[in-house]
Design a protein around this nucleic acid. Sequence first.
DNA 1: TACCAGACTTGATTCAGGTCAAGGTGATGG
DNA 2: CCATCACCTTGACCTGAATCAAGTCTGGTA
Lengths: 223, 223
Amino acid sequence: MGRRLSICNSIDDCDLAVLANESSRMTVADGRSFIEEGAPAHDFFVVTGGRVKLFTLLPDGRRQITGFAEGGDFLGLAASTSYAFGAEALGSATLCRFPHAGMQRLTERFPSLEHRLREEASRELALMQARMTLLGRKTARERVATFLIERCTHLDRPDPTRPVELDLPMPRTDIADYLGLTIETVSRILSAFKKEKLISIRSITHITLLMPERISTIAEGME
Amino acid sequence: MGRRLSICNSIDDCDLAVLANESSRMTVADGRSFIEEGAPAHDFFVVTGGRVKLFTLLPDGRRQITGFAEGGDFLGLAASTSYAFGAEALGSATLCRFPHAGMQRLTERFPSLEHRLREEASRELALMQARMTLLGRKTARERVATFLIERCTHLDRPDPTRPVELDLPMPRTDIADYLGLTIETVSRILSAFKKEKLISIRSITHITLLMPERISTIAEGME
DNA sequence: TACCAGACTTGATTCAGGTCAAGGTGATGG
DNA sequence: CCATCACCTTGACCTGAATCAAGTCTGGTA
């Protein structure tokens, strides 16, 4: 989680080779897990390509997806000694891994990085606050609307009243587990939005918001 | 949010007077709000006495309490330019206020403070992750059980199999808004726990967990 | 000691979303 | 070009928690 932590931003006046020294690249195949919830936390990660999902599990298998991460996003802040979440590639993804020890050397060398990390954690905290409100207090319709709007805030849409094309790379199961709903409910609500001409569904992964501002209104619970 | 950030821990070898210089004490009366959601964020706060609740609101008044904070807890990390949450005293509370500018002077003077703040944000992130699972995937029974266990993790209980006395200083409304339930549901479930001899209710604010380990089991969804 | 107001509990009923059960759809491979 | 499989949609029904509606308890006041 954490958008565009071009980690370099805080050290761009310095030696990038040092950064490279402390990190290693890795590729994770579709569906492969690379962080195990509860496992001892040794590394931070930066997503450099593709997408990743973060989740927590209950013993009986119920799953809550706590976030999706993509290029530039930072993973591992929500971890002290052990990871508070699991992570898995959504499609194939590439990552940059920073062992904690190396990270510490980096923050010592570039103190502003520490500040950058805190900023990132703060941004993430604010997002989570909103997500708690979604999960605790919003209706299914509001949740799906919020999800769609969230997705298009990722892109910098030019005009909020014009249609926006969205790409939903994650299966319905993941959307459901992200929103605290079932796949059936997600599916039904997307169909309802289609019937109401709020969206059009070109294909499973490709949706157009026909009236983004109306969807925003629904998302905020102002129907 | 953020437990026992004795902010001084990271600068205890230094001049405490500097810290005092950058902060001011304040007292907030019961029910009084001191952080307005969405308002420009100028300060960090440390709770020095009493309790505080943090929340976000939907336009129609639905409320999600995102956390309770008490002595030593740190507020304001989930804020960049504007606060992502509102805050209100639960009973009368005392706070230490650190304007951002002063905070910056402090982190410049005591670099380890920056690290401390990130640590705090991380801890908070991990907690929120768990809370998202609660709100998205747990049943009402599991939520109330989790809440009770959370409350007694605050104290350092000596023996998990022995009864634990708890004090719930917040009204049922707050518990409900924290757990994403209604007050009626919270009340019914507490009554059910009482009937099942899992807890005893001495008074509204004073509850004893008779079988903490069974309540833990319920909390984890392993009934 | 009785009264009152606010907070909590309990009960009856409703309903949003879950569960269960068929179908559809579209990408892949034979 | 069809079969297969995984994923998605749709429908019928059910249920957990919300809503609506009385009570009840508590602590403060006089």
